[in-house]
């Protein structure tokens, strides 16, 4: 198992290298420059600034320089904010997004699993239809529609929450709920399908023949076997949630990373774009690794084949 994880981490660095390279050149192909909107600068001043940031060098030189710094853990400084270190900037913004994302993921997945199980156990009853409708709504309606609706009802009308203001944990409740709708729907749908299949398997019949009651069959025997496909799809969903959602952050005025990312693109803030992309990639790759390890925890058959490699 240890050997397997080491191997996976080596692959991880390879993927990161490729992602960083591709992003670097794609970003440089974007029209415009960080100083485009600063119209007050004279051409001479502009040239001085370009020189200072090394933007006049040929692309390959810039690339080698950037990658060299990156290897030493230096993400550079932002063009947008005065002398702000990119690393510090990202970590500060990421904190907000992580709070929202983690809450949405945990609450959403648990509610989704419960809904999916109810639907599967009470197949073709009003419970099943109700849970299916929630799942369909959750998948087809984008989260920002829920966000606006939640804000209107609970913040504007009922005044339980502040509108468009970050004031600590309480402000994270509504956006977390809006973000949780997605995982609720996905988990409910996958668990329902998988549970129905598992419940008709021979080993569930054997569990029944042993005298197990409905609760024991659902939780002790069926759930664990039904979780495997859900974990696969939840990996990328988790990465997306934890790295922030642009629209939901905009609606609730949360100074998160999603919002920051878009700002940096529109202002050609090269080092922030690079930094954020690399952060997102690390996130996704780490989550995929965690998912692979989780497979083994849940399903002993996968554990064994992973260890053999």
């Amino acid at each position: 198992m240890a050997k397997y994880i080491v191997k996976r981490i080596a692959y991880m660095f390879m993927s990161l290298f490729i992602i960083a390279t591709a992003t670097f050149f794609l970003m440089k192909m974007l029209p415009g420059s960080p100083l485009q909107s600063a119209a007050k600068l004279s051409p001479e001043q502009r040239a001085v600034v370009y020189e200072k940031y090394g933007l006049n060098d040929p692309l390959p030189t810039q690339y080698v320089k950037y990658m060299g710094n990156l290897l030493q853990g230096d993400f550079g400084t932002s063009f947008q904010f005065k002398n702000a270190d990119v690393m510090t900037l990202i970590l500060k913004k990421l904190e907000y997004s992580m709070i929202l994302g983690t809450q949405a993921l945990i609450v959403g997945t648990i509610i989704g699993i419960v809904l999916g199980m109810i639907a599967a156990l009470k197949q073709n009853t009003i419970w099943d239809y109700g849970s299916t409708i929630i799942a369909i709504l959750g998948i087809s309606i984008p989260s920002f529609v829920f966000a606006v609706l939640l804000q209107y009802v609970f913040a504007v009308n009922l005044e339980w929450f502040d509108v468009g203001l970050w004031k600590g944990w309480k402000s994270s409740v509504l956006p977390s709920i809006a973000l949780a709708i997605g995982p609720v729907a996905i988990a409910a749908r996958f668990i329902r399908t998988e549970m129905i299949e598992v419940l008709s398997s021979d080993y569930i019949l054997l569990a029944k023949a042993k005298g197990a009651n409905g609760f024991e069959i659902a939780f002790k025997h069926a759930l664990r076997n039904a979780l495997i496909p859900l974990i696969t799809v939840l990996g990328p969903v988790a990465a997306g949630l934890l790295t922030g959602s642009l629209v939901v952050e905009q609606i609730f005025a949360i100074p998160g990373i999603g919002e920051q990312f878009v700002k940096s693109i529109s202002s050609n803030d090269f080092s922030v774009i690079m930094g954020t992309t690399i952060f997102f990639s690390v996130f996704l790759i780490v989550i995929i690794l965690i998912v692979d390890i989780l497979y083994g925890v849940i399903d002993p058959r996968i554990r064994l084949s992973g260890g053999d490699k």
């Binding site: 021979d202 054997l206 569990a207």
Partner: peptide
């Protein structure tokens, strides 16, 4: 059904046809 659960596995038990699928793979 509750009384039946007390009989199943205790007074009457069953051996199934296909041993490859009748055991829980994650237990």
């Amino acid at each position: 059904e509750k009384e039946m659960q007390k009989i199943r596995g205790k007074d009457i038990s069953m051996i199934f046809q296909d041993p490859m699928t009748s055991l829980n793979p994650t237990m």
